[in-house]
Amino acid sequence: MIDHPDFIAGLPKAELHLHIEGSLEPELMMALAQRNRITTPFATVEEVRAAYNFSRLQDFLDIYYAGADVLRTEQDFHDLALAYFDRAAEDGVVHAEIFFDPQTHTDRGIPFQVVADGLLAGMAAAQARHGLTAQLILCFLRHLDEDAAFTTLKAAEPWLDRITGVGLDSSEIGHPPEKFARVFAAAGDMGLKRVAHAGEEGPPDYVWQALDLLDIDRLDHGNRALEDPILTARLAREGMTLTVCPLSNLKLCVVPDMAAHPIDRMLKVGLRATINSDDPAYFGGYIADNYRAAATGRDLSLADLTLLARNSFLGSFLPLDAVSMHLARLDAYVDAA
Rank of each mutant, 00 (worst) to 15 (best):
E178D: 10
L153R: 12
E157P: 00
G202P: 01
I173C: 13
H175P: 02
A187T: 11
R194M: 05
F150W: 14
L214D: 03
P203Q: 09
P204Q: 10
S171V: 15
E178W: 12
I173G: 04
G167M: 04
A187D: 05
A186V: 12
T152G: 04
D205L: 07
A156E: 03
A155C: 02
G199Y: 11
Y206C: 06
K154P: 00
A181L: 01
G191S: 14
D189R: 15
P158C: 13
P176N: 10
A198V: 03
T152K: 07
A210Y: 02
H197L: 11
E157S: 13
L160W: 05
L211E: 02
H197M: 10
D205G: 01
S170C: 15
G174S: 08
K154G: 06
P158D: 12
W159P: 03
T151H: 13
A186P: 00
L168Q: 10
I173W: 13
L192R: 04
F184C: 05
K179L: 08
V207N: 07
G202I: 09
F150A: 10
P177Q: 06
R162S: 08
A186M: 09
A187E: 05
P203K: 09
G165Q: 02
D161K: 13
H175C: 06
A155V: 07
I163Y: 02
L153P: 01
E157G: 00
G174P: 01
L213M: 14
A186K: 15
K179G: 03
A210V: 04
P204K: 03
G202D: 07
E178S: 15
W208Q: 05
A185C: 07
